[in-house]
């Protein structure tokens, strides 16, 4: 059993583009749930919309990278309006139902065989990364040290991914200290009270839904850039992973989603490495390597339950804030 190797892989996960994508998506539902009180259980849908919104125009119409980013954002804005217009006037639970259902609809639509020419069907799409790699400003070579040793292309995607995370975080920070953030947080507490003070609650909820959705779609782009698009990835599991990361870090915080995503991704890799290591060293004999892949989710589930019971506000959340029954 090679502890060095296991720790190396886990530490490498800290800065991986997948972690950046998770963090970005978690910032998105942080805006939705943590600040505005919107229950979006369809963040995977926003990520899928973002991914396909980027990949399809690139492959079909040879869109340059910037234009593909724009179509991805535009598609998620449209999706947010589609979800928000009928549901945001209703009680919060309706949005939850509609988002969870529409994320599944998106996944089924992109995997239908009828659309294979456009979306690649169940097999997904690949070979769209060329134009992004071509923009790489870093010269060929090896960068970094220890577990964070990257090739030029690996470095490029990480720089872009984490820059987006940084931009999103700064944006959220600026908004939430502003009067706009105050109105949105007020809506989380009590819509009618905010309405009685002359604020157009519906418009604010829509703005928050769009903003978080755009972060979700950018997360989708970062998620697929180093690999291929696989519709099977955008199931409800992905949404709930992101929820877990958000709650782990603290919902209405700036650092919460980022650190939550880092811890989650690292733990997932670490537990996988340890379990597989123990199995190959014949210390654990009663489970197979494939079973280990599933068992780590159980372990993480148990850890998270303990966390939610003993630290419900997450790592960065304010305990005082949760001590009221509001």
């Amino acid at each position: 059993m090679d502890w060095g190797q296991i720790l190396d892989t886990a530490a490498g996960e800290l800065l991986s583009p997948v972690t950046a994508a998770y963090a970005l998506a978690a910032i998105g539902i942080g805006v939705h749930f943590g600040y505005a009180g919107l229950l979006n259980f369809g963040q995977a849908g926003f990520m899928a919309i973002g991914a396909y919104g980027f990949v399809v125009p690139t492959l079909l119409f040879d869109f340059p990278v910037w234009a593909a980013f724009l179509t991805s954002i535009a598609a998620s804005v449209l999706f947010a309006f589609l979800l928000g217009i009928p549901t945001l006037r209703l009680r919060a639970d309706y949005l939850a139902i509609v988002t969870i259902a529409s994320a599944e609809i998106v996944r089924y639509v992109v995997s239908t065989t009828g659309l294979t020419d456009v979306t690649g069907g169940a097999a997904g799409l690949s070979g769209f990364n060329g134009s992004f790699t071509a923009l790489n400003p870093f010269a060929d070579g090896i960068y970094g040290f220890g577990p964070w040793t990257f090739t030029a292309n690996q470095l490029w995607i990480r720089v872009v991914g984490w820059s987006l995370v940084a931009i999103a975080s700064v944006l959220v920070y600026l908004l939430m200290r502003s009067p706009w953030g105050r109105v949105v947080k007020g809506i989380r507490e009590d819509e009618d009270a905010v309405r009685s003070l002359g604020k157009n609650v519906y418009a604010y909820k829509m703005q928050a839904l769009v903003l978080g959705g755009v972060f979700g779609s950018l997360a989708g782009v970062i998620y697929v850039l180093p690999r291929a698009v696989q519709p099977a990835n955008y199931g409800t599991t992905l949404t709930f992973f992101i929820w877990t990361m958000l709650l782990l870090g603290g919902a209405a915080t700036i650092w919460g989603p980022i650190v939550g995503a880092m811890i989650f991704a690292t733990l997932l890799t670490l537990s996988d490495g340890i379990l597989r290591g123990l199995i190959s060293a014949d210390i654990i004999t009663f489970i197979s390597g494939t079973q280990a892949g599933q068992i780590r989710f159980m372990i993480i589930g148990a850890v998270l339950m303990l966390l939610v019971i003993f630290r419900p506000q997450g790592i960065f959340g304010n305990k005082k804030e949760l001590s009221f029954n509001v």
């Binding site: 105050r182 947080k185 007020g186 989380r188 507490e189 009590d190 009618d192 009270a193 905010v194 309405r195 009685s196 003070l197 002359g198 604020k199 157009n200 609650v201 804030e321 009221f324 509001v326």
Partner: peptide, 22 residues
């Protein structure tokens, strides 16, 4: 409701609606 309030007719509620976590 929000336009009514902007016109200068502002209400309170029977069950108070203070925004707890602000």
């Amino acid at each position: 409701a929000f336009r009514v309030s902007r016109k200068g007719m502002v209400r309170t509620f029977q069950l108070t609606k203070s925004l707890g976590r602000l």
